[in-house]
Amino acid sequence: MTPAHGLRVLGAVAGREVEKFVHQGGRFFSALVRPLLWLVVFAAGFQNVFGVSIIPPYETYIPYQVYIAPGLLGMILLFNGMQSSLAMVYDREMGMMRLLLTAPVPRWYLLLSKLVAGTVLSVLQAIAFLVIASLIGVDLPLAGMLAVMPALVLAGMMLGALGLVLSVHVKQLENFAGTMNFVIFPMFFISPALYPLWKMQESGAEWLYQAARFNPFSHAVELVRYAMYGQLQTTSLLVVVACLLLFFAIAVFGYDPQRGMLRKTGKGA
């Protein structure tokens, strides 16, 4: 595969995802409504929940909306990562996956193209959310908007890679709802997305606190949160990158023809 070939494959795969996304106008809308509801409605009731505590990276008192903005960005990335995974399962059921897998391209590169395509969509939605959040008066640092981009890309890729791993093991579309319940909700709630982890600890939920510390999604959120204030959370960066590599490696292994993932074909003609 030449570099030109590689770029064409990436363009074709990413272009197809973006095109499908544009065709399904409702998806963009619903992808934004979810986090905006949290931001506007949920956050309204928790406006002064933090009392007088100031935690890094914040240097002053912040309204709750400002606190959960990174968590909601994470939510967008998480949902979208799972959505890409759903698209993989759909492609497999529709036979499109065969077309991709019989292209003269190494499998890992096809999966990488899928991952990049999904991340592009994730980040575009995250940007749209940031713009709307700023417009409705959430006080987010303008300077941090650029710094947050690489963090969004990395976090989006890590969660997209997790989606790829799941798509290996979810054999049918019907099983997907269950997977969402067992992956999205625990990852989101057992994280600092909605409130800082010391709150969990303070409430005596030590095991939840520990679980959150080892939750890759926690680190995705913290990486984004610090990046918004121009700071680098090194631990989170390392965890996110390590998880990205690990998840991607597992996905490549899962799609290896030696293991054979088109399982239903085992029934013969």
């Binding site: 064409r8 494959v9 074709a12 529709m94 077309l99 292209a103 003269p104 391209v105």
Partner: peptide, 22 residues
């Protein structure tokens, strides 16, 4: 099993394939 993107044009389906093949 058919492996076409039903909502894309004939040409777009083939272009997608062409690019997969470099």
């Amino acid at each position: 099993q058919a492996t076409l993107d039903l909502d894309l044009s004939v040409e777009r389906n083939l272009m997608f394939h062409a690019r997969l093949h470099g």
